[in-house]
Structure formats: C-alpha cells, structure tokens
Design a binder for these strands. Structure first.
Length: 311
DNA sequence: AATCTCACCAACCGCTTGAGC
DNA sequence: TGCTCAAGCGGTTGGTGAGAT
C-alpha cells in the first residue's frame, strides 16, 4: 500500500539509486522544490512527492551534517528530550545539520540503551525505581533479561508542560512549600493524595492528601525531578534483593545517592534555587525548571522560551 | 563456509495541522 | 463552516551489514 498520492501513479519505492539522487539534487538546486507533488514529474523521477521531500530533507540537503553524533550533541538531545519528550523535530532544531529522523534513530539505537544501562528510564528521565527495576534489568553483557508486568512507578515527575499524551508520565501537582535552609531536611509529605488523573500543573495541596510519601528529596544534576522513595531501610533491603537477582551494582548505588541523608551540597543549592512561596501559595515553575537546567554541568546554549513553550 | 542474530538507519505509513477556497 | 490538499511529524518497518555461532 502506497501513499494516497502514490496510488494514482506508478512510482518506484525502496532505496534511492545514485542516479535518482543526482536528478533530485539537480532539479532542486536549479529550480527549488516548489510544490513537492510536482517535483518528481519535473525532475524526471518515478517517485511520489512525499518520497522526494523525505529524501531531500533527510539525506540530500547540502547543509546536513554527516557522521556520528558528538558527545555534546548527545547531551543536548538528552536534556531537551527530558523536557519535550519524543518531539524529534523540535529536538533536531537544537542540532544544526541534524534531522528529526536522524535524532530519532540515534535515540532509539544508542541513547535509550545507554540511559537504561545507567538505571534511568528513557521515557521519564527518572531513576528507575526499586519496585520497577525488574522491567529494566540488564546483565553485565547489556542484554535485557526480563521485561514483564509493568508496575506503577514510585518516582513522580514534575512535568514542565501540560501536554497530555500517553508517552508522558502523569504530572504531579505539588503543594507550596518553603525551601529549607541549607543542610536541613527537605519537607516530608505524609498521607498525601496523588491524583493520577490530574494533569494540571497548578499547585494544589489537596491532591497529595492520601499518598503515603515517607521521604522526598531532590535529585541534583540536570534533572527536574522530585523523587519519592521508600525509607532507607527498605531501600537497603531492596538493594540486597537486587544483588541476589543479578542487577548491576551501578543501579543499586543510585538508591544510596538519592537518599535524604546523602543529599550533597549541590543538590541543596538546586533545591534552594527553585522558588516556593508558602505565603502566597504560588510556585514559579519557570524559575524552577530554569534553575534545575542551569545547574547542569553541560554548557549548551538554547533559548528557554523556544525550548519550552514554542509548541 | 554457512547460518543466525542483532543493530543501524533509510524509507514508509498514517495521522495531524494549517492554508486556501 | 466545511472541504480538500500539501506539508509536517512521529511511529514503524524492512533491508543491509557486521559479528557471533
């Protein structure tokens, strides 16, 4: 089954030959593409316009950057993906010379696996929770050994945008809290209710009424994530279980790192940079996102406005 | 040497969006 | 307002080559 346009005429499909490439390049460089539906006829190609467009955009365009992705490019993809999700076209705009298709392929073939091996959920960019870790269990040879029942995540994300799609985790609405002074314990929310259906990013204390959260802390680095983790004793038990079930130590170490007793100075700084205001019940989400991103060790340039709200 | 498995990536498919009428 | 069509986009497929058995 071809495209709608392809059913009307006999068109070639599959890989492009060098001759076809040459014809397309010659036509577009001399005449421009104009209407893509007219291109195949004018260029003397037995292809549909859609196929020509894709070939030009993804492969023949002279401004395309060839070769493998640099570490800097990889970091940009990860950071932008954390905020925007699978919006490959928008992500690609932050990488001159790269196409959405190329970024998507690189993500699926390389970055995704790398994140999973580091104990990070590539969809949410959260650490893979202790409860859910079986779904991401990898042996030392990096082969997935098990991927069965999908338990709910115990890690909850503060999502900076309101996009409501199945590919995004539910958005946690946080109550307004005051930032703790440095080296003191972040707030503990007890008996709080996390409304799974709420995708409103406004701050409403009532939504946390029934969810039992024993400890809550902020993870440092480039993430904008609130982690809800079991008590440390339970984490240690899980760690022992994990060792028995052959889960790599690298992932287990993360539990210790994020425990409230082990929050580093940098994490505290990031926490303090976020603006919580209990007196006015307001929460500056923009500032929060910006502060978390700017705490990144990666030094890349992009416009926050474009990045977050240009859709 | 033959076969199998896996990863990569170009291309396809179908849906959404927006412009023009 | 509703229809058509082109363009854009994200998910998926399938061909190919490299490495393993």
């Amino acid at each position: 089954m071809g495209h709608r346009c392809c059913t009307k005429q006999r068109v070639r499909r599959g890989l492009w030959s060098p001759e076809e490439d040459e014809k397309l390049i010659k036509h577009i460089t001399t005449h421009g593409h104009g209407s893509w539906t007219c291109v195949p006829k004018l260029a003397g190609l037995q292809r549909c316009g859609k196929s020509c467009r894709l070939r030009w955009i993804n492969y023949l365009r002279p401004d395309l950057k060839k070769g493998s992705f640099s570490e800097e490019e990889e970091q940009i993809i990860i950071d932008v993906h954390r905020i925007l999700g699978n919006r490959w076209a928008v992500i690609a705009k932050h990488l001159p010379g790269r196409t959405d298709n190329e970024v998507k392929n690189f993500w699926n073939s390389s970055i995704k696996k790398k994140l999973i091996s580091q104990g990070i959920d590539p969809k949410t960019h959260n650490l893979i929770s202790s409860h859910n870790r079986d779904n991401y269990s990898y042996c030392n040879n990096n082969k997935k050994v098990q991927s069965k029942s999908q338990e709910p995540f115990s890690i909850i994300t503060v999502n900076p945008h309101k996009r409501n799609t199945s590919s995004h985790p539910p958005i946690l609405t946080l109550p307004p809290v005051s930032p703790p002074p440095p080296h003191t314990q972040p707030p503990i929310f007890n008996k709080t209710n996390y409304d799974q259906n709420s995708h409103d990013s406004s701050m409403n204390p009532s939504v946390l009424d029934n969810l039992l959260v024993d400890e809550i802390c902020f993870l440092g680095g480039t993430t904008n994530t609130v982690l809800v983790e079991p008590p440390f004793e339970e984490a240690e038990q899980l760690q022992n279980q994990n060792k028995e079930t052959n889960i790599c130590d690298e992932v287990v170490e993360v539990d210790k790192m994020i425990n409230i007793d082990h929050v580093k100075d940098g994490d505290q700084n990031m926490y303090n940079n976020a603006t919580f205001d209990i007196s006015t019940s307001s929460f500056d989400l923009d500032k929060f996102i910006e502060s978390t991103l700017m705490s990144s060790t990666c030094d890349f340039n992009f416009n926050m406005e474009d990045l977050l709200w240009n859709f």
